[in-house]
Design a protein around this nucleic acid. Structure first.
Lengths: 215, 215
DNA sequence: GCGGCTGGTTTGGTATACCAGATTGGACCC
DNA sequence: GGGTCCAATCTGGTATACCAAACCAGCCGC
C-alpha cells in the first residue's frame, strides 16, 4: 500500500501538481487519500530515498526543488551507470534482449511524431531500461531505476525539445548497432554522444523556465 | 531514532552477529532494544534500501545473504562510481582536498602494520570516501556511501588478505599522484588497477569460506 | 508602533491496538 | 506410519492514541 501511495505521490510531484518547495503534511495528505499516517509516512520515506522529497527532522517534508547543479550531478551519475550497462551488456546480453532493444528503438521511430510526449518519453525510458536490464546486474538495474525516477522530470522537460528528436533517434540506432556488434568501446562512445546534448538541454531549459534554483 | 537503530542493526549484520538468512522479527528485535515497532520498522526499511536485509511481503524480513554474483555486481557498480569520482575530482578537487587524500594515504602507510584490520579498513574507506567527496557531486557521494555500506562485509573480508597490502599501498599512492597531477585518464587507470585484485580476492574468499551462496 | 515573549495549535515521532494473512503443530483419517 | 487438514498463534500491515517539539498569533512591555 505504501508503494501505491508513493506511486501516486511520485506522479503528482513529477507532473507538478505538488509544487517544489511545498510542504507535505502527513495527516493532511493521508486523510485526503483515505489512509492512515503509517503507510503515508512510509511512502514519503520512499520518495525521500529517491530524492523527490526532502526530509527535515521534526519538520514537514518538502517537495524537493533541486538546483541545476544537483540535477546535472545526478545526470552525471546516471550517465556513468548507463556506460557501465552498455559495456556489460555487450558481454552478457542475450540475442533476444538485443532484439527487444532494437524493437523498442523501432517503436520510438515509428511513433515519434504520432503519440504525445509523455507516452513517447515512457518508451524512451523503456529503451534505456532495457539496455541496463541486459547487463544482468541487479544492483545496477536498481540504482539505475532510482536515478531514472529521480530525474524523470528533468529528463522529460529535456526530451520535449522537438528540435533534437531526430538526432535522438539516430543515436538510439547507433547504440543498438554497437550493442548488436558486441563492441563495448563503440557502445560507450554512442552512449556518450547520446548524453552530451542532455546536459545542454537541461541547462537551457533551466535557464528559461527558472522556476527554481534554491532549496 | 530509527537511524540509530539502523546503525546498530547494520553493525550487527556486518559483524555477523545477525547471521545471513536469518529472519528479523519486528516485535522481537524491537522489544529487545526497548523501542516500539514503528522505529524498528523504519530502521529495517533503511537497511533494506541498503541491501543488507531483504523484505518479503507479509513475511519476516531476512538478513541478506548475497551470492557471489550479487556481490561482484555491486562491486562493479562501486567501481564505476569511483571511476567517475576520480575523473570529476581531477577537475573539481581543491588543493586542500587532495592534500587530505594524500594525508590519509600516509596514515594508512604508517599504521598499516600497527593497528588492527578493522581500524585500518576504516581508514581505507575514508581514503576512498575522500576521493568521492572531492568530486563535489552530492548524488555521487550518497550513492557511493550506500554501496560502501552494502559492501562493507565483502570488502572487509577481502582487505584482510595481508599478502596484498603492500600493493594496495602502492596503488593508493599512485591514485593520489594522478589526482594531484589532475590527470583524469591516469587517475581512472590507477583506480582500475586498484579494483582489479578485489574481484579475485572476493571470489577466492567466497570459495574458501563458502558460508553462503543462496538467498 | 515594534520587537520579543508566551500559550495554544499544528505536526512529526513514537507507542499501542487491531486486523488479516501466514505459519506451525497436532490431531485425525487413510 | 504418513499425509492432510484445521485451529491456535505468530507476524507483518494498518489504524489510532499520545507526546514533545516547532510554529503562529496575539499580547505585553518598551
Amino acid at each position: 500500500m505504501a508503494e501505491a501511495i508513493a506511486y501516486d505521490l511520485r506522479r503528482e510531484i513529477l507532473r507538478g501538481t505538488l509544487v517544489p518547495g511545498e510542504t507535505i503534511k502527513e495527516r493532511e495528505n493521508a486523510e485526503k487519500r483515505g489512509v492512515s499516517r503509517t503507510p503515508m509516512r512510509e511512502a514519503i520515506r520512499i520518495l525521500a530515498q529517491e530524492g523527490l522529497v526532502q526530509l527535515r527532522p521534526l519538520r514537514s517534508p518538502v517537495v524537493a526543488n533541486p538546483s541545476l547543479k544537483e540535477i546535472i550531478d545526478q545526470v552525471r551519475v546516471l550517465h556513468a551507470l548507463e556506460l557501465l550497462s552498455g559495456e556489460l551488456a555487450c558481454a552478457t546480453a542475450t540475442e533476444a534482449e538485443i532484439a527487444r532493444i532494437g524493437h523498442l528503438k523501432d517503436e520510438i521511430d515509428r511513433l515519434c511524431d504520432i503519440i504525445d510526449s509523455v507516452d513517447l518519453f515512457e518508451l524512451d525510458m523503456q529503451f534505456h531500461a532495457a539496455i541496463v536490464a541486459a547487463s544482468h546486474n541487479q544492483a545496477l538495474i536498481e540504482t539505475h531505476r532510482a536515478y531514472m525516477a529521480r530525474l524523470w522530470r528533468a529528463r522529460y522537460l529535456s526530451a520535449r525539445i522537438r528540435r533534437t528528436r531526430r538526432r535522438v533517434l539516430r543515436q538510439h540506432g547507433a547504440i543498438h548497432r554497437a550493442l548488436a556488434a558486441r563492441n563495448p568501446r563503440r557502445t560507450k562512445a554512442e552512449i556518450d554522444a547520446h548524453f552530451a546534448p542532455m546536459y545542454k538541454n537541461i541547462e537551457s531549459h533551466f535557464k528559461t523556465s527558472e522556476d527554481s534554483g534554491g532549496n
